[in-house]
Simulated assay, not measured.
Amino acid sequence: MPKLMIIVGSVHEGRIALPIAQWVRRAAEADGRFDVDFADLAEIDLPLMDEPNHPRLRQYTKAHTKAWSKRVDDADAFVLCFPEYNYSYGPAIKNALDYLNAEWNRKPVGFVNWGGNSAGTRAQVALRPVVGALGLVITKGNVEINFPQQQLVDGRFEPNEQQAAVLQAQLDEMLALDQALRPLR
């Protein structure tokens, strides 16, 4: 069973990222085709990139980097859950991606992002070149959520029908991409 890492890409207090990512986790676990690893960047607490060597060398010197490297290396696919900040993605998700290099290569990635009117589209567009440079393969269907606070019920994110359908299609595609890319890794 492929290992799907769901990355909570926001770390600030009061973030809506956690309930949204928990919805993704519930959906992936209910799907039953993935071993789910829930990676909350607030808990992982990576400092701003502090390794002396370029990540492509994989000559890590810090325990937090070695642990992150192993965890990402063990994953077969990723869902990045992240908000839009000032027409782009936030620093936590960029830092987590930049810590590593080869560990991401030739693995599928899907996005679940949100914002106001744009539903996080601009953040997704800005992050696409970054994940492409790391060798990740982006799913065609990605979840975009307008004003997600309106979908919180007692602290739990409740997706609408379209969001649930897009996430399910993303999981389907992720499984197919994993099978296609696995021999190339």
Rank of each mutant, 00 (worst) to 15 (best):
V24T: 04
P47K: 13
L134E: 00
Y87N: 08
R25F: 10
S88E: 06
D76Q: 07
L184A: 11
N101R: 04
P183F: 04
T61D: 11
W104Q: 00
V166H: 04
V166L: 15
A63S: 05
A27E: 12
I20M: 11
R156E: 15
P83R: 14
P55W: 09
Q163L: 03
F34P: 07
R25M: 13
L46F: 08
K62M: 09
T65K: 12
E84V: 02
A28H: 03
A119T: 06
D73T: 13
L100R: 07
Y99T: 06
K62C: 06
V8T: 13
K3M: 00
K66H: 06
N117K: 10
A180L: 14
L171N: 06
D172Y: 02
R185N: 12
N86D: 09
V112Q: 03
L181F: 01
G14A: 11
L80M: 15
S88L: 02
P47L: 08
L127W: 09
A119F: 06
A92C: 09
Q150P: 02
V125N: 03
Y87I: 07
T139I: 00
H64Q: 10
A39G: 03
R15F: 00
L41N: 00
I44R: 06
K3N: 03
L167Q: 08
D76T: 08
A180W: 10
Q150H: 08
N86L: 06
V153A: 13
P83G: 14
A39D: 11
V79E: 00
G116T: 04
L184P: 00
L171P: 02
D35W: 08
M49L: 13
F34H: 02
T65R: 09
M1E: 07
A63Y: 01
D98S: 15
Q163A: 12
T61Y: 07
Y60D: 05
R33C: 01
R25A: 07
P2Q: 07
L152I: 11
F78L: 10
A21L: 13
Q170C: 09
F34Q: 05
Y89E: 05
D74T: 01
K3T: 10
G132Y: 02
A27M: 04
R56H: 04
K3I: 05
A169V: 12
Y60P: 03
T65N: 05
A28R: 01
V36D: 04
Q151V: 08
H12D: 03
F34N: 02
L4K: 00
D98F: 15
D50I: 00
A17I: 04
G115Y: 05
G141H: 10
P55T: 14
Y60E: 07
L97C: 15
L181S: 10
N86P: 04
L152Q: 13
T61K: 15
T65S: 13
V109G: 06
F78P: 02
K3P: 00
E51C: 10
S69K: 05
R25P: 06
G32W: 04
S88K: 03
A126N: 06
V72Q: 02
A169D: 14
D35V: 13
V130I: 11
A75E: 09
P91E: 03
S118M: 07
N142Q: 14
Q149C: 05
E84H: 09
I20H: 08
L136P: 01
K140M: 04
E144D: 15
H12R: 15
V143N: 03
M1H: 13
N53W: 12
P55H: 07
P19F: 02
I6W: 12
Q149A: 14
R106I: 07
L171M: 05
A27R: 14
L171Q: 07
V137H: 07
T121F: 06
K70V: 04
